[in-house]
């Protein structure tokens, strides 16, 4: 740990920043693997294929998510899902046979894209998570509207972002393109600075 730590807002070093209030924690969440599954439920066997290949039941209602066998499946569109491997180990066991699964799906008219490194994730924990996000997210992130276990694609400031409200803990994870990680982290810290926040060490993507 360097002698003079930067205690500026936007630092990634663990500790408390900003105002005096406690309870808000922000930190990076590691995505072990993420695949984009595309297929038309009406014209292909993608739903059955997902069950067979991943043990995953695809959510068909917009902005809903399902947990299954170590995977979090997020609805991205009527013909698109994001499968996130929540495992902490790198590389995750389920990443094996990616190409075989992809070829299997291609043969049946669907597609599987490896986008594991495309996004970075930041988790905001605490009762004040909605007001921290409200600085940059135009959606209604109140827990009674953006329900636990739901996801939504929107903006963080001016960049595309994917939001997921955790099932049990009062936490929301926001995922953005990797190249924008620096800007988005800075924006989160600024938003939380007025009240105060703690930075946590990067942890596994914990969708529980």
């Amino acid at each position: 740990m360097p002698e003079s730590e930067s205690r500026d807002i936007g630092s990634t070093l663990p500790g408390h920043y900003g105002g005096a209030a406690t309870g808000t924690v922000i930190g990076a969440a590691t995505i072990a693997a993420a695949w984009n599954l595309q297929g038309d439920p009406a014209r292909s066997s993608v739903v059955a294929d997902a069950e067979r290949l991943f043990g995953a039941s695809l959510p068909l209602d917009p902005n809903t998510a399902r947990h299954t066998q170590g995977l979090l499946v997020l609805w991205m569109g009527p013909r698109s899902w994001l499968l996130i491997d929540r495992g902490a180990a790198r590389p995750p066991a389920s990443l094996a046979d990616f190409e075989a699964r992809r070829d299997d799906l291609n043969a049946r008219g669907s597609a599987l894209f490896d986008v594991s490194a495309s996004r970075v994730a930041f988790t905001v924990r605490g009762e004040r998570a909605p007001s921290v996000l409200a600085a940059n997210c135009p959606l209604d992130v109140d827990a009674r509207v953006f329900l636990p276990g739901r996801c939504a694609q929107s903006l963080f400031g001016r960049v595309t972002a994917l939001y997921y409200r955790h099932q049990q803990a009062p936490a929301v994870t926001v995922m953005v393109s990797r190249s924008l990680a620096v800007d988005v982290w800075h924006g989160l810290c600024l938003a939380a600075a007025s009240d105060g926040y703690d930075v946590a060490l990067p942890a596994a993507f914990d969708a529980v």
């Binding site: 984009n36 595309q38 894209f113 594991s116 490194a117 495309s118 393109s177």
Partner: peptide
């Protein structure tokens, strides 16, 4: 099927 992988 297509997806952007610029970031990947």
């Amino acid at each position: 099927h297509a997806t952007s992988v610029t970031e990947q």
